[in-house]
């Protein structure tokens, strides 16, 4: 009666021989074609036949499928979550690719050719020979205004984005400022309203005119989009309320950085806290440079 699919014997054989980067070639071709169309229509969400991945939906399956379709044996891969290389999900995704591709992995932004990220853009500026892949939970910037895909699709078709401006302006009326601090909407190449994924708005300016190719994958929602290199990415704002990023009164407690995104860490149960770089590589690089100069001084 069990003749429709492979028997467990075949399964054992198959499990030892997944394709390079897990996805089959047919799926990669479909995703690759979608990626190319995404680049030619910056900020537009291309529907794609997203596959079930061996990792859970909402845990980076879109980013993983994009990375799997782009990655080659020569790539050096970096995976971060919340800016850090050692958060559990980043570790899990990095080991998935190490296992299925055998590529070299790194924690150094400068060394990577391919970076998969969740919720941050590295502090170290990206270059032309790098590709960054964002994991996207909800790709549709208009979703909280209009839950229906059929409607939001029309709104994008007509570039009808007035509702989003109204929503942001309601914040200003109520709070005196725009109360969106992450996943802050942007206009790409002067045309498409786009969700930058839940990066803090601190990172939005990094997307603008970036020399690297930026790719976005939403697995559960089955959408791919892109920002080509050297492309305008403008955070929505108003003339009397220009876009601003977060700043901190403190410096990083580890490396002393004054210009990176800081995480707040609770140090005791009496309200004690400290601020440290969310980008662990950036922080580590600064410390290493600092140590090296200390050593030079001692040696002299």
């Amino acid at each position: 009666m069990d003749t429709i699919s492979q028997s467990p014997d075949n399964f054992h054989a198959a499990s030892g021989s997944y394709n390079f980067a897990y996805l089959d070639e047919q799926t990669k071709r479909m995703i690759r074609r979608a990626l190319l169309k995404a680049i030619t229509i910056p900020g537009y969400q291309v529907p794609f036949g997203g596959r079930e991945m061996p990792l859970s939906y909402g845990w980076g399956t879109g980013g993983i499928q994009v990375t799997a379709s782009v990655i080659g044996p020569e790539d050096i891969l970096k995976v971060i979550d919340q800016g850090a290389d050692d958060t559990t999900n980043a570790v899990s995704i990095r080991s998935f690719f190490a296992k299925t591709t055998g590529v070299e992995t790194t924690t150094e932004t400068a060394e990577a050719t391919l970076i998969q990220t969740r919720h941050r853009i590295p502090e170290t500026p990206l270059r032309e020979d790098q590709v960054i892949v964002y994991q996207v939970p909800i790709p549709e910037p208009l979703r909280w205004l209009e839950p229906r895909e059929t409607e939001t699709r029309k709104m994008h078709g007509l570039a009808e984005y007035g509702g989003m401006h109204v929503r942001l302006y309601e914040d200003i009326t109520r709070y005196g400022k725009i109360a969106t601090s992450y996943d802050y909407p942007v206009i790409v190449n002067g045309r498409y309203l786009m969700r930058p994924s839940p990066i803090p708005k601190f990172d939005n300016p990094k997307m603008d005119q970036n020399p690297a190719l930026q790719l976005f994958g939403a697995g559960r929602e089955k959408r791919i989009y892109a920002v080509p290199p050297y492309t305008s990415v403008k955070s929505l704002d108003f003339e009397d309320h220009p876009f601003e990023i977060q700043t901190w009164d403190q410096d990083c407690a580890i490396c002393g950085s004054t210009d990176s995104f800081l995480d707040e860490v609770i140090t005791d149960d009496a309200g004690g806290r400290m601020f440290v770089c969310s980008d662990t590589d950036y922080c580590g690089q600064r410390m290493a440079a600092h140590d090296a100069s200390d050593e030079t001084e001692t040696n002299q």
Binding site: F20, K28, G72, P228, P229
Partner: peptide, 19 residues
């Protein structure tokens, strides 16, 4: 060598369309 060759060719076209 279909799998790596397809990937390599794709990276070329990805680059050409990006720049």
């Amino acid at each position: 060598d279909p799998v790596p060759d397809a990937q390599w060719a794709f990276r070329g076209i990805l680059h050409a369309m990006s720049y």
